[in-house]
Design a protein around this nucleic acid. Structure first.
Lengths: 195, 195
DNA sequence: CAAGGCTACCGAACAGCGTTCGGAGAACCG
DNA sequence: CGGTTCTCCGAACGCTGTTCGGTAGCCTTG
């Protein structure tokens, strides 16, 4: 029923709160249960275990990521430079606005755990969305896309890891897009970086 | 004495072996002790605890990283393009040749743990070395350096995470250097990306 | 050689972890 | 009302990192 779903949501919210306070792997199920007025074993009525809770958190973050990318690419910008800037800004905004969520989604930081295919699906869709959007602006080919993902994830990773709360790498986004665009250019050769 | 230092080294080697087999956080002290013919409490004669073992592993990896960077930058190449390619190749070689070590050094993947200043020092020295080397080739200024580190770490991160054992991002190194160099150029303005 | 100190090692135990099991009580449905 | 289902929990299991107390053996010193 709705009752059950509401309890699941409450548990997930408490898990996010705890993750922000003490880190993704820093809280125990007894602690989490306490936040929602339960004992640890009762959580197993709603999730198969701690990994399943991480999976549900990942699924939620993954959907939020897809929404963020969708929002950034949804505008009717015709010029490639603006589109790429919007995409990169969206990614870094997403990363910096919740570093814990970024850590869960993009760094393999929970030992021995990996997300289920279902939880991962929205992230895959976001990647496909970016791919088609770049292609629409004349940027295609695996090598170009790989260089793009490396640049975006590199900026985000450095920002989150080495200047949390700041804008040191965030401020490089526009320049990074210029660097990328001017040299990569637009071509139909799928295996080239330079036109 | 030497006896004590040899046992410490044996424990560290066993720790690396286990980390490669079951992951950085996937082994217990009882398991580790068994590898060197001891019980868990005896390890405390040589290390203050599991965190101290991670710290010693980090220190070793950090020294290896400094050696790798030193080796790449030590040659007497005069042309900036070759120097940057050598540096980036060295970083990706270092990352892919031992992903577990890369994970320990460059991803905050052990919950609630961070390296001591002593263990970190060689990595700082490696960064400084890169900085002066780039400056010697006319590339200076924080923004340019930050873009460089983002590019290097982005390629390495993507390679290790999404194509372990392959060369998908590794093969982009030469192009990435070209992309970086052609647009960043060489200037003395410390706050510009483009000359 | 003998005595004492120091090093290396370990058994037992502690608190905490994720997880399982069996049962108690409440809620729902015929 | 009777019976089923759902929700919750106490107790316990095996595991973890870590601490403590004690016991051998080695090394140095008188």
């Amino acid at each position: 029923m709705a009752r059950r779903e509401a309890t699941r949501a409450a548990i997930l919210q408490a898990a996010w709160d705890l993750a922000h306070e003490v880190g993704l792997t820093g809280f125990s199920l007894r602690e989490l249960a306490g936040r929602v007025g339960m004992r640890a074993p009762s959580l197993y009525e709603y999730f198969d275990g701690k990994d399943a809770i991480y999976d549900a958190m990942f699924a939620a973050g993954s959907r939020e990521f897809l929404a963020a990318i969708r929002g950034a690419l949804g505008g009717d910008v015709t010029d490639p430079r603006s589109a790429l800037r919007a995409a990169m800004h969206a990614f870094l905004d997403f990363a910096t606005s919740d570093p814990v969520r970024f850590q869960l989604l993009f760094q393999r930081s929970i030992a021995g755990w990996e997300p289920s295919a279902d939880a991962y699906a929205p992230a895959v869709e976001a990647y496909e969305l970016s791919r088609t959007s770049l292609a629409a602006h004349g940027i295609s080919g695996r090598r170009r896309l790989d260089l793009w993902t490396a640049l975006v994830s590199g900026l985000a990773h450095q920002q989150v890891a080495n200047d949390p709360g700041g804008t040191r790498w965030y401020d490089l986004v526009d320049d990074a897009v210029d660097v990328f665009l001017s040299h990569v250019g637009t071509t139909t050769d799928p295996d080239a970086i330079r036109p």
